[in-house]
Amino acid sequence: MRTFLAALALAVALVVGVLGFRGDLKRQPPLEIFPDMKRQMKLRPQATAAFFGDGRSSREFVPGTVARSTPLKVGDQLVYPFEDAPVNTGRLPGTTTNFIDAIPLPVTEEFMARGQQRFEINCLPCHGPLADGKGVTSKFGLAIVGNLHDKRIVTMPDGEIFNTITHGKNLMQGYGANVAVPDRWAVVAYLRALQRSRLGTLDEVPAEKRAGLK
């Protein structure tokens, strides 16, 4: 009996020694003892796929094709993302520098809130919460971030700011791929509000809200 108990204890110790405890660091992927249909032949996004020459499951657009898309409602027109329209490019159709002056979408409170949210996700790390170019990255070597309260940017047409967000400028990379078209316009609207907050005078503040300001 003693030998048996010793053998059992040894076996338990061996299993625990080899398998360890729950939550231990593991470098190897989880073992799937009963595979069932856990891993199927279908392609998952951003995975490897030996079938394609470049080994990627997510495919790029075939040249000359257009992605399925939902049109954007501008006024009473429907504009598709591939169209050369002011709402997509920030410029008058067929021109390269004639930027439009105003945001082509209705600026509502909801639109503004969306703009603030998108600004804080995408712009705040470098430009800072107040858009003065003092984001957290300035401590890490991003020395020349634009202060968006500069006169140059305050007087810039909305379309040009939209174009800069889309394609970038100087060291700033474009955000066209990461921020959708209406969101980019919403960011422009929110930026205008931030600029106004520094340019406004006390007379412009409604009387009942003045007390909160110094």
Partner: peptide
Amino acid sequence: VGSAVVAGAWYYLTPKYARVGYQP
């Protein structure tokens, strides 16, 4: 022996053991 096997299966044959801690 039976208890040890059941306890081992309960402890190890679960995503709480298999997945938690995976850090490639």
